[in-house]
């Protein structure tokens, strides 16, 4: 039992860190530009597809990963300057419509280029097997994901907390008008940020590719989870996104693994077998509703 819990906790950590890669970019888009960006999930999907295609063509996972990250950063810049920039000053409804349209467009573009069948993405061969860890075996590839996720989280912490650009970002999130008045070029800063967000989403897409299916619609599922994360953490806060991601990743994974078993101890088997999965899948939404109820601005509000 403890082994199961430990293994699932590691899985939760791994999933949470991947969510963080997606949520980090999204929370800054929300926080600084006050923009509802529904197509962030499409950047994640685009990254996974680019990565899978490049990995298949070159036979190397690492080439696929680099192609996806660089490719999506470029696409992110193009998207921001050509389309999204024009919607920052519009109301939330216009942003919902525009970015929903982008989802429709990107889903069909992917279908046009790669067809309706899911793509296969294999983990690098050296990491395909399990590793002995504290007396139980755990997939090496998942460990790599955890390591990369932790590394990126540290790098972002340094970037946002200890560099000049990061200071501008924090200033923009706290009070954009004031930051602009003090001479921060929020427009240019934001194009850069958007590229970074797109690259991180692509990185998550490629890393999760071998574990989840690379298929059309993958972005829609993960997008809502990312929303839950940034609302729990507080819109515009990177630290909030990290805490929120880990909370959501661990609650979701542990809930799915343990709730059905736990319920079986207190309720009849047939009730437990239906109620367990239902409770497990709504657990994170309950968490979010609870946070919003008691802390309406999230756990780490960024707004000054």
């Amino acid at each position: 039992m403890t082994q199961l819990i430990l293994e699932q906790a590691l899985n939760g950590l791994q999933f949470g860190l991947m969510l963080f890669l997606i949520a980090a970019g999204l929370t800054l888009v929300f926080g600084i530009m006050d923009m509802i960006h529904l197509s962030h999930g499409s950047l994640y999907m685009g990254g996974a597809y680019l990565g899978a295609a490049a990995a298949q063509a070159s036979g190397s996972f690492l080439v696929g990963l680099s192609a996806a990250v660089l490719g999506m950063a470029v696409i992110g810049v193009l998207l921001e300057t050509a389309v999204l920039r024009h919607f920052y000053r519009r109301d939330h409804l216009a942003q919902v419509l525009a970015t929903f349209a982008l989802i429709l467009i990107s889903n069909d573009l992917v279908r046009m280029i790669w067809g309706p069948q899911p793509l296969l993405l294999n983990p690098p061969e050296a990491l395909a097997g399990p590793i002995e860890l504290f007396g139980f075996s755990y997939p090496a590839y998942r460990l790599l994901i955890i390591a990369v996720g932790l590394g990126i989280a540290l790098a972002l912490y340094w970037l946002i907390g200890h560099t000049r650009a990061g200071m501008w970002v924090r200033a923009g999130a706290a009070n954009r008008a004031m930051a602009e008045a003090l001479g921060v070029d929020v427009r240019r800063l934001f194009t850069g940020l958007f590229a970074l967000g797109a690259a991180l989403a692509a990185l998550a897409g490629v890393l999760l590719g071998p574990l989840l299916a690379v298929q059309v619609g993958m972005g829609e599922n993960i997008l809502i989870l990312a929303f839950v994360v940034i609302v729990i953490g507080g819109i515009g806060s990177i630290r909030g996104a990290l805490v929120g991601s880990l909370l959501v990743g661990i609650v979701d994974t542990l809930g799915r693994a343990l709730l059905p078993t736990l319920l079986r101890a207190v309720a009849p088997a047939d009730v437990a077998s239906q109620l367990g999965p239902a409770l497990a899948s709504i657990a994170i939404y309950l968490l979010m509703a609870g946070v919003l109820f008691w802390r309406p601005a999230g756990l780490f509000p960024a707004r000054a």
Partner: peptide, 14 residues
């Protein structure tokens, strides 16, 4: 605001 959008979304997903 944004939080109302998100919380209604969360309840619908539940």
């Amino acid at each position: 605001g944004v939080y109302f959008i998100m919380i209604t979304l969360a309840f619908a997903q539940m």
